[in-house]
Nucleic acid binder design. Structure first.
Lengths: 249, 249
DNA sequence: ATTTTTATTGCGTTTTCTTGCATGTTTTCA
DNA sequence: TGAAAACATGCAAGAAAACGCAATAAAAAT
């Protein structure tokens, strides 16, 4: 195994597990402890991890950029996507924003579906390349590379002249009280506008997101017509249902 | 086997396999390890791969663009792209439309380039995912799946509020007398508008396109500031130069 | 067509890199 | 404080890379 490959693997492990023990790594990576120690020292010098006695710690919050997220073909997300398919019918005008879950969804759309898909996400648009009976409309704007969606004033303005039957919202963070939130202002503005111009809104969220929040609030949770999720605990489900949200489990 | 052919193959392998070992490549490509090492060094200097001890790593995410799907990823186009790089400077506002040649071009843009890229092509936008110092602006519209560009009235209107320093036009057909032409009306309208809003226009065309035409005319050939091509015969070159076009060979 | 020039390749040699181990030192924790 | 675990350091073996050089192939010029 290449040194860089190994170090990359260490970073990934650290990303998931928050801390690592040198001796464990030695076994998992099948190299001597000395080598692991040298790797940890390297990564520490690069400022990527914090070296401590017996192992190392993650420095910031877990970082997953879009391309790696895309690589993670999570079983959970795929299942969510399937549930959402029930709400999609022929002749609908459907607004879809970005996110890996939504990407999973469009990949599973039947090729025969006749509908109009409006999106501000280039990867979503590209995924629909082979769907010959779909009309795909891209909303332009400034490309926000972290999540690969178009944002900004132009995007909001373009949305003004649109009416959709259904908005399929990729959910970054959601909390029953606080509502739906995202880390950037312009993302929140665009999502809010998308809500405005859509008759119904479906949110897709894996269960780990159900009690989380971020900096910029998009809308209250009960703006959602349906919240599609999985493995949700009874009490959490109740909290959403009390808001009048239809939770699909 | 030609050097470039070999290097291209290495890139392809790396695209599939995420890492390569010099010794393996030597066997697979049937050349000495020294040659492989030299290739890897070249590719590293071009910023296309990350050289590491004993092999090399892929830099970005795997590229699954529609050009490779179509099996068109010719060395000629890549060479054209390199020539065009000379015209691209920091702080420019650059308009780029679709096409496989243009995709090649953006894939070869230096990661350090600081500029604004405006495009109506989702694959182009996606290819710029890793260029953190570029601002990417997408022009929306109706996705035209054959060539993966956004077209239509919205596209033209969005272009109205834009001024670019340089327009890099992917050329479908060009003829010294007839001019530049494309097979669909809306594509011609968008390209024409792009010409309108740009100070300079560069056209990229492989030599097989230099005497061809299609149904909808975009503009006369001499709208181009530069025509970048390759292996062009002397008499054809003359025909363009008589139109006052700067032909880069 | 032939010579000249240039580029590419493979080989032998030297240098550098990586890894694991041995040894001595430091840290941790009971 | 004392023992075990973790760590740093030096070293050696093996692998890989860099370097210089010569042979060959390709391209350009005559």
């Amino acid at each position: 195994m290449l040194k860089e490959e190994r170090q990359h693997k260490i970073l990934q492990i650290l990303n998931d597990e928050h801390k690592v023990i040198a001796r464990d790594l030695s076994k998992r990576l099948r190299v001597s402890e000395d080598t692991v120690r040298r790797d940890l020292k390297d990564l520490d010098n690069q400022g990527l991890i914090k070296r401590v006695h017996s192992g190392a710690l993650r420095i910031g919050p877990p970082v997953v950029d879009f391309s790696t997220r895309q690589g993670i073909s999570s079983e959970a997300k795929s299942k969510l996507a399937v549930k959402a398919l029930d709400f999609i019918k022929d002749n609908m005008v459907i607004l879809i924003d970005g996110g890996t879950t939504n990407l999973q969804l469009v990949n599973q759309l039947p090729k025969s579906l006749k509908a109009t898909i409006i999106t501000n996400s280039p990867p979503i648009a590209m995924a629909l390349n082979e769907h010959h009976s779909l009309e795909v409309i891209m909303i332009g704007g400034t490309l926000f590379k972290e999540s690969m969606v178009n944002l900004g004033i132009d995007t909001v303005e373009a949305l003004n002249s649109i009416r959709a039957d259904l908005y399929i919202m990729g959910i970054y963070k959601i909390d029953p009280q606080i509502g739906i939130s995202v880390p950037s202002l312009s993302e929140s503005l665009v999502k809010r506008k998308m809500c405005e111009v859509s008759a119904e809104i479906i949110g897709l969220a894996t269960s780990d997101k159900l009690m989380t929040m971020s900096n910029h609030i998009v809308c209250p949770s009960n703006s959602l017509t349906y919240l599609i999720t999985e493995n949700v605990k009874y009490d959490i489900k109740q909290m959403y249902q009390q808001q009048g949200i239809n939770v699909i489990d």
